[in-house]
Design a protein around this nucleic acid. Structure first.
Lengths: 192, 192
DNA sequence: CGGCTAGGTCAACAAGTGTTGGCCAACTGA
DNA sequence: TCAGTTGGCCAACACTTGTTGACCTAGCCG
């Protein structure tokens, strides 16, 4: 009750940090405002003060900038490796992307948010590599399936073999796949 | 109030069918017993009568037999295609696997159930192809990342390019990836 | 000093959830 | 015929959740 007064913007950040962690670990539905407030050592109503409602809090907490590297500077055949390495490093560091992925599994709006991220950011990074620009969305999406699949296995499902792999091992296995999705000639139909 | 009497086992199946659909479409948390009961045109308490509790209902609804094909009979280089085709066909037909995937995103117990499925069924199907049997779990898990990644993109996130692809197109793109995970020589480290 | 503002608490509301137990009515079979 | 079983409904309980509004109080600024 000593009304430990903090700087305001500071508590806002603290709420956000706790929220990110909770969303990433448990998903949207199972994360409660009360739990966030408790861990941030404030009253639940403070969360509402700062963010309006749970929905809005999530939106702010889950805003993501993938900060993708410029693939055009990568050596030919190395683009896949660069991309894979970037992703593994990114989501190993912080769980924001995982929070969004978790929620997207049961909430159409979060799925839409994710679609936006991949449609814009990933497709944009991929586009310069394609001779035919209309191919970019499809290639970006294929890349996404593999990268998100790994994320799913490693952080959500926690498949033991995937969890045990080092980041380097993951990159080594996955890079050729990404690279093929990025650069394979459309005349690949005889896929044998 | 006419107490429209059905056969009992029949309603049980009806509950199960509705439950499967709801779980697959909305995930565990957002699926309510009341909603299932309403759509099955019974009282919520009937669901409890038949299945004990929501948890148990989900377990029964999400029990899965992948019915994987025998990969040893596939021609060399065709195993990936066979596997990919089987999966796409399976989950295109019914959403049980998607229900489990959705829930696994926010519930550790469902994730464990999924781990079990892939650790046993997929690893078992993959094992005969490996010269070194201890490699099987890892290869199975790698296969899982790609297949589940596609499922995620197509049915959960609904990434437009993935949704628009025909099953055949998906198989064509993904088969070589699966095949490499299944059969690539461990001396693949110079992955360039 | 004195008022206003901003950080913070408290208690409650309204809605929705899983779950329970009691009761009813139609069949079934002895 | 009549008791028992079985499919079914109803109403409520206990709990959790997001959300709200009234109130408090330490400071800063005039």
């Amino acid at each position: 009750m000593p009304d430990t007064r903090r700087s305001g913007a500071e508590t806002r950040e603290r709420i956000l940090a706790v929220a990110r962690e909770h969303f990433a670990r448990q998903g949207y539905d199972r994360t409660t405002i009360r739990a966030i407030a408790a861990e941030a050592q404030i009253d639940p109503s403070m969360v509402m003060r700062y963010f309006g409602n749970k929905e809005e809090l999530f939106k702010v907490a889950a805003s993501i900038d993938l900060a993708l590297p410029d693939l055009t500077t990568a050596a030919p055949g190395e683009a896949g490796r660069v991309m894979a390495a970037h992703f593994v490093r990114t989501w190993d560091a912080e769980g924001t992307l995982m929070a969004l992925l978790r929620r997207a599994a049961s909430d159409p709006q979060a799925a839409e948010q994710m679609r936006g991220i991949f449609a814009s950011q990933v497709a944009a990074a991929v586009a310069p590599l394609c001779h035919d620009p209309t191919e970019a969305p499809r290639r970006a999406a294929l890349v996404a399936t593999q990268l998100l699949g790994v994320a799913l296995g490693r952080y959500v499902l926690r498949l033991p073999p995937i969890v045990e792999m080092t980041p380097d091992e993951i990159v080594t296995w996955v890079a050729p796949t990404i690279d093929r999705y990025l650069t394979a000639d459309p005349a690949h139909l005889p896929q044998k």
